[in-house]
């Protein structure tokens, strides 16, 4: 199968799963924004995305996307290190054009995954998982009370700092990942290169700003304002 056997095929897998995950993040950010305006509205969304069959199915698809993206990242990184050879350069000079994020995608990805595990533990474990095992009062709040969990999580300053670091890592990862995915899929050229870079930077900056605003709002004034 060319998707697994060729270098471009493996990159196509990274691109498609990456783009799908960006779309998921977009949905997630939109959902979070509801919490800024209405506790009741946000908890309605959480109830809809509880242990219903469609939400569970979507969660499994998401888990598969993350797993495939991460496993292929490991495979590609190992192959690339082998291709580089065992002798390293004594002196290296990063050209101006080369962005830092582009050369550190794997490290950033590992930070993103560690943050993801923390996030799943803070929210998903107490919410969807608690409902699935039939114990909706397992965590500090009721499983459907997503608003309560946001207040709970961001009342802890250490968790808030960790979430901000996580958002920054995702931002760096996506500033390269966005246009790089389109380049790999062949949808790029001399004219579209700058356009995609600009669109991508704006898109992921707005996206991550939405996550950040929600986190900071609850960190600084909890559910009060």
């Amino acid at each position: 199968m060319w998707l697994c056997n060729s270098s471009i095929g493996r990159k196509v897998i990274m691109s498609v799963t990456g783009v799908a995950l960006i779309l998921f993040l977009t949905f997630h950010a939109c959902m979070n924004v509801v919490a800024l305006f209405s506790e009741e509205g946000y908890n309605t969304v959480c109830e809809l995305l509880g242990a219903n069959w469609y939400a569970v199915a979507a969660t499994l698809v998401l888990a598969a996307l993350v797993a495939i993206h991460f496993i292929y990242a490991i495979i590609l990184t190992l192959q690339n290190r082998k291709a580089r050879g065992s002798n390293r350069y004594a002196v290296t000079d990063r050209p101006e054009k080369v962005e830092w994020a582009s050369q550190n995608m794997f490290v950033l990805g590992v930070i993103v995954v560690v943050g993801l595990l923390l996030h799943l533990y803070n929210f998903w474990y107490n919410m969807m998982f608690a409902e699935l095992i039939g114990d909706p009062y397992m965590g500090p709040c009721y499983a459907g009370d997503g608003y309560g969990y946001i207040v709970e999580t961001f009342s802890n300053p250490i968790l808030t700092v960790l979430y901000v670091v996580w958002f920054v890592a995702i931002w760096f990862h996506l500033t390269h990942g966005f246009w790089s995915a389109l380049q790999t899929l062949g949808w790029n050229g001399k004219v579209w290169f700058q356009r995609w870079k600009t669109i991508g930077t704006w898109y992921v900056t707005i996206l991550m700003a939405l996550f950040l605003v929600v986190a900071l709002k609850f960190a600084f004034c909890g559910g009060a304002c």
């Binding site: 080369v98 790999t184 949808w187 290169f193």
Partner: peptide, 27 residues
């Protein structure tokens, strides 16, 4: 040879100024 991750280091050093637009075309 390794898998391309679009870092653009290649086009930055190419003595003939080849563009990574070529890589998109190959893809």
């Amino acid at each position: 040879f390794g898998n391309c991750t679009n870092t653009r280091a290649c086009e930055a050093v190419c003595p003939k100024n080849e563009s990574i637009a070529n890589i998109a075309r190959l893809n």
